[in-house]
């Protein structure tokens, strides 16, 4: 049961990533990326990582999509003809991608087939009982690093917005 669901989710993950890469409209690509993140978060939840799943869903599917959509809104709008032309060009560039993916899948199936001796080990669905301990106890230095990275990000955003204000003056 779990294996079937996971197989469907993994296929959905790859298909939504392909759609995200191939669409010429940035808005639709951002939405496809959000769907990819949402599917990934469901996979994480099934595999027993609920805290990471919530992070993925709220931050990657939510916040990053908003950032992309706000960035898209700052570009000029294209006419329908321009849009069709762009999609044509994009389809030409991505014509090799399905073939590459198919070939990769075939090669991997051939390589991995002799090593498969089990269907699926029992899933650990007990959840993130000790994630807090792992984060706050074992990885305090990493947390400090994360705080520094977040502050660096905030500083970067502030610098760019200041530059924008200076430009507008």
């Amino acid at each position: 049961m779990n294996l079937t669901i996971l197989l469907i989710l993994l296929i959905g993950l790859v298909v939504s990533a392909v759609v995200c890469a191939m669409l010429s409209d940035l808005l639709k690509a951002a939405i496809a990326l959000a769907i990819t993140s949402a599917i990934l978060s469901v996979i994480m939840f099934i595999l027993g990582a609920p805290l990471a799943a919530v992070f993925e869903l709220s931050v990657c599917a939510g916040m990053i999509t908003v950032v992309f959509i706000s960035a898209c809104s700052m570009n000029r709008n294209r006419t329908k003809e321009e849009h069709a032309q762009r999609q044509k060009e994009r389809n030409k560039r991505f014509i090799m991608l399905p073939a590459i993916l198919f070939a990769l899948t075939a090669i991997l199936v051939m390589i991995l087939r002799p090593y498969i001796n089990d269907i699926a080990p029992a899933l650990n669905t007990t959840g993130g009982g000790n994630v807090q301990m792992a984060l706050w106890g074992d990885r305090q230095v990493d947390l400090l690093g994360q705080i520094v990275i977040i502050l660096t990000g905030v500083y970067g955003v502030i610098v760019f917005f200041k530059e924008k204000e200076a430009d507008s003056k």
Binding site: M44, L47, G48, A49, L51, A52, F55, E56, V59, C60, M63, I64, V67, N124, G128, G129, N130, V131, A134, L135, D138, R139, D142, Q146, I149, I150, T152, G153, G156, V157
Partner: peptide, 20 residues
């Protein structure tokens, strides 16, 4: 999985800052 979960949270934080 617990250690992996902690690493994934770190990856997500770095991903968001990189993107911003």
């Amino acid at each position: 999985m617990i250690e992996a979960e902690a690493y994934v949270i770190t990856i997500i934080v770095i991903e968001v800052v990189l993107l911003a």
